[in-house]
Amino acid sequence: MAASSVDYPSAVWSPASTSNYTASNRPSSYAVDMVVIHVTQETYANTIRLFQDPAHAAAAHYVVRSADGYIGQCVREHDIAWHAGNWSYNTRSIGIEHEGWVDQPSYFTTAMYHSSAALTAEICDKYGIPKDRDHIIGHVEVPGTDHTDPGPNWDWTRYMRLVNGV
């Protein structure tokens, strides 16, 4: 897939294995009304490799690199990425992974916050998603999950201000 066909112009196509998501035709088949924020617990490169491994059984739509905010798109937005651990939330959300570890706040750089917030704002504008914490949630907030990301070091106040352009 050419770079011009990514859903977000600043992203670079880094395709996940087709074994790690469900082909769909969203928002026609399922409304998109949420963004789920994740932290990889891996490096950026290892995350891309995991998403490309057909045995991994998971992938997010986007991965944001810590050092420079570089964005890789792994699953097209119209498809259902397996990122939330809850089918209902997978069908209705866009998943954004962030390189790093929940207990290492040094990974949450200014470049990462700015790049990710711009991506989230564009997704919200595209799908008419309110830019609030009811619709932009952490993986930890997905019902039935056993994940803790993005963790206590994720600065939600800062992030939401950036998403809202304040």
Rank of each mutant, 00 (worst) to 15 (best):
E42K: 15
V39P: 11
P15S: 08
F51Y: 08
R65G: 07
H38P: 08
A55M: 09
I48Q: 03
I48F: 03
F51D: 04
M34I: 13
I48N: 03
S66I: 06
R49D: 08
E42P: 09
P54H: 09
D7S: 02
T40A: 15
T47R: 11
A67P: 04
S24R: 11
T47G: 12
T47D: 07
A59C: 04
P15A: 05
N25D: 12
V39M: 14
Y44F: 15
G69M: 04
E42H: 12
D53C: 08
M34N: 13
V35M: 01
A16E: 02
A23T: 10
A60I: 00
A55L: 08
G72Y: 03
R49W: 09
A60D: 00
A45D: 14
E42V: 10
P54A: 13
P15E: 03
N20M: 02
S17A: 10
F51C: 06
R65K: 14
S19F: 11
M34D: 13
M34P: 08
Y70R: 14
R26D: 00
Y62V: 01
V63W: 07
R65S: 07
V39W: 05
R49V: 10
V32Q: 03
V32T: 12
Y21D: 05
I37T: 05
Y30L: 10
D53F: 10
C74L: 12
S29E: 06
P15M: 03
V32M: 07
A58I: 03
D33R: 09
Y8H: 01
N20A: 04
V63E: 05
Q73C: 09
E42F: 13
D53S: 09
G69Y: 00
V36D: 03
A58D: 01
E42I: 09
V64I: 10
A16I: 00
S10V: 13
S19P: 07
R26I: 05
S28Q: 15
V12F: 06
M34C: 13
T43H: 13
Q41L: 14
S10E: 13
V75W: 01
A67Q: 14
A59D: 02
D68K: 04
S28G: 15
P27T: 05
G72T: 03
S29L: 12
V36M: 04
Q52F: 03
G69H: 02
I71G: 09
G72A: 14
G69Q: 05
T22R: 13
T43R: 06
D7C: 02
